[in-house]
Each structure stands twice: as C-alpha cells, then as structure tokens.
Design a binder for these strands. Structure first.
Lengths: 108, 108
DNA sequence: CAAATATTGAGCCGATTGGCTAAATGTCGT
DNA sequence: ACGACATTTAGCCAATCGGCTCAATATTTG
C-alpha cells in the first residue's frame, strides 16, 4: 500500500503534474504510448514541429518526472513510456471523487 | 456524451493542468474541497503563508480554469469548488489505462 | 458620512520556461 | 580512420510566472 516517504511522493506528484503541464509533453507521452510504448528519439522528434533539441528537452523533463526512460541501442536512443507515475496524479485527483470527507478536526 | 467542441476541450484541459501545476493552487483546491466545498477568500488566504494578493491571484487562475467560482456575499466573496472540470484531466489520463490500443493506421 | 473590514488591482522584479542555433558526442559503414 | 548519421549539450533570448508592496474598490458599522 505504498504509504512510505510522503515527501518523496509529493515531489513526484509535483514533477508529474509539471511535466504534463506542457501540451508538447502530453503529446509526446501519448504518441509513444499509442505507438506501442517505445520509440526512438528521432521517431518522436520527427513528429513535432519544434526544432529537434526543443523536443529532446521536453523528453528530458518527462524522464526526470519518471514518465519516460531511455536505453541506448546502437546509435539511436529508444524511449520507453512508464505510466506508473501517472498514478500519483490519479491518486491526488481521487480526493475529489466523493462528497467532501471532513476530517477529524473540530469545525470552527 | 459531451463530444462537442474538441478545440474547446483541448483548451479546457490545458487550463486545468496548468492550474494544477502549482502546489499552492492544488492545495487551495483541496482545502476548499475538504472544508465543504466553499470558503471565503479570506478563509482561504488566511491558511497560506503567501501574501494575500498572491493567493488571490492563484484563485483567479483556478477560476479561469473553471475549477473555482465565486459569488459576492456582503463584503466577503465566497469561493466554491467545481471539480467537474477535473474530468477533462481524468479523461486524458484514461488514454493510458489499458494496453496501447493501436488505432486504425497501418504500422510501418 | 467616516472609519473599519474584506478583497482585488496595478505594477515591479528576479527566476524559470521554452523556443532557437551552433557545437559536441557517440556509433556505424566503408 | 573518415564521413555520415543520431542525438544531446551549451548557451542565447524573449516571454511568462509567481512572489512582493502599495494602492483602489466595495460594503458594513458607528
């Protein structure tokens, strides 16, 4: 029930939501996912209007957030999606699922 | 099944995720929610370390994203949460729920 | 009406973001 | 070893962000 390391979880949530805040990064993630979960850097960059280094940087942000990882294969780098980190966000969102559950704190 | 206005939906998603990208704004939203769904501006601002106008600005961002709305009551303003917009984000996240569903597009 | 209260608006300012181009790095084929 | 290819690193620069302080605007109360 991963309830360990609340500080780390907060940071992870922050990294994830910040990474998703940019449309290009959301699209990168979705593109890789829909194409089977992994793509080369060039395959990704080729699909975007941005200059290649710009897209590379977005990938670095996604990787720093733990949403993407990469592996070198010959002279290409293959990026693989890891959507387990998205659970942090889903978990946060689930606070809003039911009617507000007032906590054990006297109302003022 | 709200499938209308794809452009508007994209913009809404962007506004929502950008609004949630800041920890103070996430906390404002959660605070209002947990306290029953509505609070005065002062009630909110009083709980944060930031200067009051700073928090006010965060509230404006949340309101622009459709996550908060307000109503004037006497000399106070009561903010009310509207978490229906969070569904845009949940919907986007749901792309990643199952194994990648390759679309009707020949693989290369 | 004047003073107190509740809240926002205006505007400054340093830090971060996200685009770009040019150069560096690493690998493959000849 | 050399040249072509795949990708990243470095660094510039304009725009946005998010803090702040100091007004400005309602609204209630005396």
């Amino acid at each position: 029930m991963r309830r360990r390391d609340p500080k780390g979880r907060l940071e992870a949530l922050q990294a994830v939501v910040a990474a998703l805040a940019h449309p290009a990064r959301r699209q990168i993630l979705l593109t890789v996912h829909l194409r089977g979960g992994s793509m080369t850097a060039g395959g990704i960059a080729g699909r975007f209007a941005h200059a290649w280094p710009t897209t590379t940087r977005h990938m670095r942000v996604l990787e720093a957030a733990g949403l993407l990882s990469h592996e070198r294969v010959g002279r290409t780098r293959v990026y693989r999606i890891d959507h387990s980190r998205l659970d942090h966000l889903k978990e946060w969102l689930s606070w809003f699922d039911d009617a507000p559950k007032r906590r054990a704190k006297r109302r003022r």
